[in-house]
Structures are given as C-alpha cells and as structure tokens.
Computed example of a mutant assay.
Amino acid sequence: MGVVNVGRNPLLVLIVGCGNIAGVFDQGRSHRDPPYTHAGAYTRDGRFNLTACIEPDDKRRSEFMAAWGVPAGFRSIEQALGSGSQFDVISICSPTDCHAHDLEMALHLKPKMIFCEKPVSTSVAETKRLVTECGKLDIPLGVNYTRRWDPDISKLQADMQAGRWGQLRSVVGYYNKGILNNGSHMLDLLNLLVGPMDIVKVGKPIQDYFPNDPTVPAWLEGAQGVPVHLVCGHAEDYAIFELQLVFSRGMLTMEEGGMFWHERRVLDSEIFKGYRVLEEGVRRAGEYPRAMLQAVDNIYRAINQGDPLASTGESALAAQHVCEQIKQQACEP
C-alpha cells in the first residue's frame, strides 16, 4: 500500500449494513492486526472518514457506531437519502437479498464509487441491469472478490504469464456453502487465472447452507482444454476454500483461502532412477490478510488518480454468469 497521508481531504464513507464484513469481524482485534472488514480497512488506511452507517437493527447500528466512531446512523438508505448527506464512497455490506435495492438507491446519492459485497445480486439479469445503470451514471462499481487484491494472487498471475511454473495442466478448486455465495469467489478467481471456461458437466447439487444456493460439483475446461474441477465440501463439517494448480514444473496449492500456500517443485527421484517427482516443498504464510487494505488503496487511487479497479461489476457479472449456468444445469430434472 502507498503512503496514506497525501495532503488531500479524506473521502467520506457510508457503510450500508453493520454486520460481520462491514466491521464486526474486526471489532475487539488489535489495531496491529490486518483488517478483514470495510470499516477496519477504511480506518487503518487513514484517507477515509466513516461518516455514516445504515442498519435497520437499532442495537446493532448503535454498537457499530460506538465501535468505529461513526457520527451518523440511519435505519434505511431512504432515510440517508432524505438527510441531504453526501458521500464519496458507499460500501454495500447488507445481506445479498438486499443488494439490488441498496445499490440502486445508492446511485441516487451520486457517490464517486460504490464498493459492493459479492455477489452483486441474486441473479445475472439483476446484476447486469445494475452494472449497466452504474455505467450510465459514470459511477464506478467495485465488487469485493477479495483475492483480486491478494498480493499472492497478483504474483501468481504474473508468474503464470511469464511461464515460471511451466504449462498449466489442471486445476482443482475446493469450496462449500453455495455455488453463488462461495462458488462465485472460486469462479472469479479461476476467471482471473485460467480465463474463460466452458462447462463440461455438473454433478448433483448439495444443500449444505442456503436453501436456494446449492453447492455443486462441476467439471469445466479452460483454454487448450485445461481441465478445471470444482470439488465440494459440506458447510456443516467445516469451511473450505482451497485451490490446487498442477503445472509442468510443479504444484502450487492455496490453503485456507489464501492464509497459507504450499509450493512443490519437480526434482529427480533419489529412489527410482529416471523418474521425476515432486519435492516435499515449502508451506508458507500467505499475503491474503493484506487484501482489504489493498482494496481500499485501489479505491482511493481509482477516485483520485484514475487507476483501474482490480474487481469490477463486469468481472463479477462474468463469474456470476458461470455460477448461474452451473446451478441451472444441476437443478434440471
């Protein structure tokens, strides 16, 4: 992240929804720990002011305001609109079912940027409409597919483009808790690293958390027929979000959502002469905890310097389109 004190007025932030990703996950943690939430990242960055929040639950709103020093609170986005307040950045952290309404109302506040939690909405048609509306009003839409700001992912993307791991042979992604809720994270990441993919086959849907968002196994193919497999866990067992990439020069595994990485290179076997095998490798801590700080830095620079956003409404729509296709095929009679 760049230098925070650049002599400009801080950007004014409105946070819609006062739940976990808005700020609760960071409440009670040391200020030295990396932030995982919107409020935590804006506060740590230092170039933003949390000026207001919206939350229909009075107790939750009051606790959020006290925890983050937010001076103004509203029960609804309509109430914020009627107050005449102005905001530079609006973070949409409300439940997914509320995103479409909240995002549409946020456009009436005419911010310089909207930063929406994933997915943008519950359907491709609705997301496409909202992305189009943002474009018409020239209001940039960032979507929090956080790994697009993970330094490890940026480095991996560069390494793959430079051929440092050799040819990509296959990919396996492990996830649970819904093809849209968590699967969209995986498919957005795969779109970034592998590129556009075709669906070859989908398996039986697994109802492991959300009634209308099953977890679905799938087989896809990337460019040059690279096989990509989505493998399911069950949300009742434990959380899982991991990615394994098999290259001609080794194997790379993202573990615990990017909190750790396991790198294994190819070497000559000491036991079987003439064979090449994977070394035991190194497991190292990942840079994922820096992602939210990278995200708000990207937002600041996008507003003040015109930098491109790493995660946009368009890239989010592309991932959601694949999610919806997988779900439709899995639920066909």
Results as ranks from 00 to 15, higher is better:
46 G>S: 12
161 Q>N: 03
157 Q>W: 02
145 Y>V: 07
289 P>W: 04
188 D>R: 08
57 D>V: 07
58 D>T: 01
241 F>Y: 07
325 Q>N: 07
272 F>I: 09
8 R>L: 15
31 H>F: 08
312 T>A: 13
300 Y>K: 13
298 N>A: 01
36 Y>R: 15
252 L>M: 14
74 F>M: 05
54 I>E: 15
81 L>N: 11
196 P>F: 01
114 I>M: 13
129 R>Q: 11
219 W>I: 14
61 R>Q: 01
181 N>F: 09
332 E>C: 08
263 E>T: 12
71 P>D: 04
93 C>N: 08
244 Q>F: 04
114 I>F: 10
70 V>Q: 15
249 R>Q: 14
173 G>K: 01
272 F>L: 15
44 R>I: 00
170 S>H: 05
54 I>P: 00
19 G>L: 10
79 Q>L: 06
193 L>A: 06
41 A>E: 12
314 E>A: 13
301 R>M: 10
76 S>C: 14
93 C>E: 12
85 S>G: 15
4 V>Y: 10
265 R>S: 13
308 P>K: 04
17 G>W: 14
189 L>H: 07
2 G>V: 02
254 M>C: 13
173 G>E: 02
191 N>R: 03
181 N>S: 03
47 R>P: 00
192 L>T: 08
69 G>R: 15
26 D>W: 12
80 A>R: 02
252 L>Q: 08
174 Y>K: 07
103 L>F: 10
192 L>P: 14
194 V>G: 05
129 R>T: 05
302 A>K: 09
67 A>N: 08
12 L>V: 01
137 L>R: 15
219 W>G: 00
189 L>P: 02
132 T>N: 02
232 C>W: 13
289 P>I: 00
129 R>F: 05
94 S>P: 01
154 S>N: 02
208 D>Y: 03
101 H>M: 02
66 A>P: 02
2 G>N: 10
4 V>T: 15
49 N>R: 14
168 L>K: 09
100 A>M: 11
103 L>E: 05
85 S>R: 08
191 N>F: 06
259 M>C: 00
236 E>I: 03
179 I>P: 09
228 V>C: 13
198 D>M: 03
55 E>H: 09
103 L>W: 13
78 E>V: 04
184 S>L: 06
147 R>M: 06
188 D>I: 03
142 G>C: 05
6 V>C: 06
71 P>E: 00
158 A>H: 05
151 P>V: 00
120 V>F: 04
220 L>C: 05
32 R>H: 01
123 S>T: 14
296 V>N: 10
5 N>C: 03
309 L>C: 03
136 K>R: 11
245 L>M: 15
233 G>R: 11
177 K>N: 14
246 V>T: 11
298 N>P: 07
92 I>G: 05
210 F>C: 03
135 G>P: 04
279 E>S: 12
101 H>W: 10
110 K>G: 06
66 A>M: 08
21 I>Q: 01
234 H>S: 08
174 Y>H: 14
45 D>N: 07
312 T>P: 10
90 I>L: 12
208 D>L: 10
214 P>A: 06
71 P>V: 08
1 M>V: 08
183 G>H: 02
269 S>N: 14
181 N>H: 04
